[in-house]
């Protein structure tokens, strides 16, 4: 490569990698480097309060033949961190971060190319809880008529909600706490909420 060729290569290299930043591309290996960049404007913060024992036991599952069992990360043969995301986030309808931020505050041109080339907003169109049920059945090769297929998955999780005043003062001792039970079925997903404590 001559000096001139190297100059052109450098320009082309940065045109692609930095051009992706301007266009807000976030498809590996290109990225506009948005890690942790999105903060939703809200006067409260709701976070999951995990329960290692429950999570380790896994989803409470119901088969088509009426058998009740648990579906753990070992049954599904996936890493613990990924199971945590399925159990605590996807099951409760929370998508992966790149879905949540993909269309946030796009300028008109970027919105146009996303909608034209990529399609609808994944944060709106995707049914994350149903994806888990579909995945679980596909993992074990259970077809629609298989009596062993899972027809219902359940997860239980506590959530804590902090007000802006609590966050700003650093007093995190008395959040509003709620226990949610998500029931993922063939026909849809229900979330049952119970207030707990203060």
């Amino acid at each position: 490569m001559t000096r001139g060729g190297a100059r052109l290569f450098i320009i082309g290299f940065f045109a692609i990698f930095f051009g992706a930043i301007l266009l807000r591309v976030d498809y590996f290996p290109l990225s506009w480097v948005p890690m942790y960049g999105f903060r939703e404007e809200s006067d409260r913060l709701t976070v999951a309060v995990g329960d290692l024992d429950r999570r380790d036991r896994g989803f409470a599952a119901l088969r088509a033949n009426g058998e009740r069992t648990y579906l753990s990360r070992r049954d599904l043969n996936i890493p613990p961190a990924n199971f945590r995301r399925l159990y605590q986030e996807r099951a409760f309808g929370e998508g992966p971060p790149q879905h949540l931020r993909e269309r946030a505050r796009l300028i008109a041109f970027n919105r146009w190319w996303y909608e034209t080339l990529i399609g609808p907003d994944p944060a709106i169109g995707q049914d994350y809880p149903r994806d888990i049920l579909r995945s679980a059945n596909a993992t074990f090769g259970y077809g629609p008529n298989d009596p062993r297929r899972f027809v219902q998955l359940e997860a239980h999780l506590d959530f804590a909600t902090f007000t802006r005043a609590q966050l700003d003062s650093g007093d995190l001792t008395t959040p509003f706490r709620e226990r949610r039970q998500v029931v993922i079925g063939d026909t849809g997903t229900r979330v049952i909420r119970h207030r707990i404590g203060s």
């Binding site: 290299f13 990698f17 976030d26 590996f28 290996p29 290109l30 990225s31 480097v33 890690m35 996936i78 890493p79 990924n82 199971f83 995301r85 399925l86 986030e89 996807r90 998508g95 992966p96 971060p97 790149q98 879905h99």
Partner: peptide
């Protein structure tokens, strides 16, 4: 493999690739 289980795509390999 790592990022497809639950869909969280990490950025740790982006600079390495470049």
């Amino acid at each position: 493999m790592r990022d497809s289980f639950s869909g969280d795509v990490h950025h740790r390999e982006v600079p390495i690739f470049a």
